[in-house]
Amino acid sequence: MKNNSPAFRWQFLLPKYWGTLLLVALMYALSTLPFKVQIALGKRVGRLVLGRMKKRTNTIRRNLDLCFPKMSEDEKERLTVENIENTGIALFETAMAWFWSDKRVNKHVTIIGMEQLEELEKQGKGALMLAVHSMNLELGARAFGIKKSGTGVYRPNSNSCYDYFQYKGRSRSNRTLIDRRDVKGMIDALKTGKRVWYAPDHDYGRRRSTFAPLFAVENACTTTGTSMLVNASDCVVVPFTMVRDSNDHYTLTIHPYLDEFPKECEQLAAVYTNRAIETSIMAAPSQYMWLHRRFKTRPEGEQCLYAM
């Protein structure tokens, strides 16, 4: 497994990176505010920022139309507004994950189902932690890392200064990171009984992918990486969800591993994985990253599902 840990460089103090340093300083300052204040501010930031980003807001609405054609317009509008607010809250949740103390994280996050991972650990079995891009995923990873070591799959940021702080924030509390291009590193980690956080719910393009149903969309471009990792390492797939409830308390639930995962066929594995993804999203649909153009890659001959 490659060592991806970036080092702080004196060049980060140059004017080129002052904007990045100011952003990180602001994140730290905001993370020190009372929790309820952060949630309230997050909602306002979401409404303010996405209110000016019509393209992103339209993507949220379009995804909901595609996935839930039978949902009432009033329900989709309510879900859209809540999703916009949760997008703003996510900015604060990232700061919480990077800068809060272990004690403060534990106060706001409850973890259920850890005993299942302990049993797999006794068996020396690797666990591919099936994640979805919920808004609070960063905070969930941090809370998990306090209890158990884990390995996250991530994409290094092109801004080397921001990447340094991103890596340091994400690797707190017993968590290491693997570049998403380091497939061998993921397999090695799983083979040695480690837990790898993996989110196959986005559209990653045609390379190493197939088309499988997701909600009401018959052909969603779906990575075949899940089945590849399972077959190469003989690990098990363990879904989990991170949900913030109406009282603003978080619960990270580790669900039973998928004991019927179809190893013999990439296509069946993609269908099976997407069903598990649907279940995870529906645990808190307003907290999912709907602003991503999930269905941008289409089969040959099919038209784009998003307005150009």
Rank of each mutant, 00 (worst) to 15 (best):
T151L: 07
Q267C: 02
M27P: 14
E121K: 13
H255D: 01
N157F: 06
Y272K: 09
F35G: 00
M308C: 11
D188E: 12
N231M: 08
N247C: 02
R9G: 06
T151H: 07
S227Q: 14
R208N: 13
A189G: 01
K107F: 01
C67T: 11
R244H: 02
D65I: 05
C161Q: 11
N3P: 04
H255K: 08
K168W: 01
A276E: 09
K70D: 15
L26Y: 03
L13K: 11
C161Y: 05
T297A: 07
A95S: 11
R275P: 04
S101Q: 05
G225N: 14
L21E: 14
H249F: 03
S209G: 09
I84Q: 05
L305Y: 00
L21N: 14
S101Y: 04
T57P: 03
E302Y: 06
A220V: 07
K36T: 15
A270M: 03
K103N: 06
T226Q: 10
A25G: 12
R9Q: 08
L137M: 13
I111R: 02
L137H: 09
E115P: 07
G193F: 15
K55P: 03
G169K: 07
I281P: 09
E260H: 12
T224F: 05
V271L: 08
W98M: 05
V217S: 02
M282N: 08
F165Y: 14
N231R: 15
N58E: 05
Y250K: 04
G46K: 12
H108P: 04
T192M: 11
T223V: 13
N231T: 08
P15I: 03
L305I: 04
E118R: 07
S246E: 13
R52L: 12
Y28G: 01
I187T: 09
R244P: 02
F99N: 06
R56V: 02
D179L: 15
V236W: 10
L128N: 07
D203L: 11
F261V: 03
R142L: 05
A270Q: 04
L177I: 14
S5D: 15
V109A: 01
P299E: 00
